[in-house]
């Protein structure tokens, strides 16, 4: 495999944004995701390969390490930043259709709830694994999800809730989505949510961590 892509995967895995970034200490002074993506494009590596063979493998390793408690939220944020810095260079190729994402994931924190770090981590990880992510923000009523599905047919939905009181809102939203779009897949998560609750409200998958929903998407969409 192209050596630049191997290096790029490492930049994402360890959160090396660009040459100037001091983090991580062991990569100080080396090129980061920013420079390497540019170099790869300049040397003719297709944007699709940069995404699929450089960025995605790096992000997948982060997701697994996060699930195994080997890295924490800040390291994931660093990796996500490295990823998004690289994506800036790739944007024109997605716009022209030369490179493609695997599918679309729409995520939001349910109505009545304002927590967003957990939801953001899921969004970053899903995006880093090659999906287009539509982030609806927090305190989202059912109509907002429904409108987003209309705009993005075939998208999978993610609902996040951090309080037991707002889990009722998660139930209501899931039912409304399933009524309007029976084929649409709904993933649920957040600290008080579990698989029994997922089953009760008729959602399709519960995952305790972002990697879980990535794996679900990879089996259902990719």
């Amino acid at each position: 495999m192209n050596e630049l892509l191997t290096k790029l995967a490492e930049c994402v895995e360890f959160g090396k944004i660009n040459k100037a970034a001091p983090f991580p200490p062991q990569m100080k002074g080396q090129d980061g995701a920013d420079e390497i993506t540019r170099q790869a494009l300049d040397s003719g590596v297709p944007a699709q390969d940069i995404l699929g063979e450089g960025l995605m493998p790096g992000m997948e390793r982060v997701g697994i390490k996060f699930r195994e408690n080997k890295v924490f939220v800040p390291q994931v944020l660093m990796s996500a930043k490295a990823m998004s810095t690289a994506m800036v260079h790739l944007k024109p190729y997605f716009a022209s259709g030369e490179a493609k994402q695997k599918g679309t994931f729409i995520i939001g924190t349910v109505q009545g709830d304002l927590h967003d770090i957990g939801k953001n981590l899921v969004a970053m990880m899903v995006e880093g694994n090659g999906y287009k992510v539509v982030d609806l923000g927090t305190d989202c009523p059912a109509e907002k999800y429904l409108a987003a599905i209309r705009e993005n047919p075939g998208a999978v939905i993610g609902l996040s809730a951090l309080l037991t009181t707002t889990m009722t809102s998660m139930e209501k939203i899931t039912r409304e989505i399933k009524n309007a779009f029976p084929e649409t897949l709904v993933a649920v998560g957040g600290a008080p949510v579990n698989d029994d609750f997922r089953l009760k409200i008729g959602a399709d998958v519960y995952a305790p961590d972002p990697q879980g929903v990535v794996e679900f998407l990879n089996t259902k969409i990719a």
């Binding site: 001091p22 983090f23 200490p25 890295v71 924490f72 800040p74």
Partner: peptide, 14 residues
């Protein structure tokens, strides 16, 4: 520790 390190080993930028 919440940031992922022991206090004495906290790297930059943390």
């Amino acid at each position: 520790r919440d940031l992922g390190y022991e206090f004495d080993d906290l790297p930059e930028p943390f």
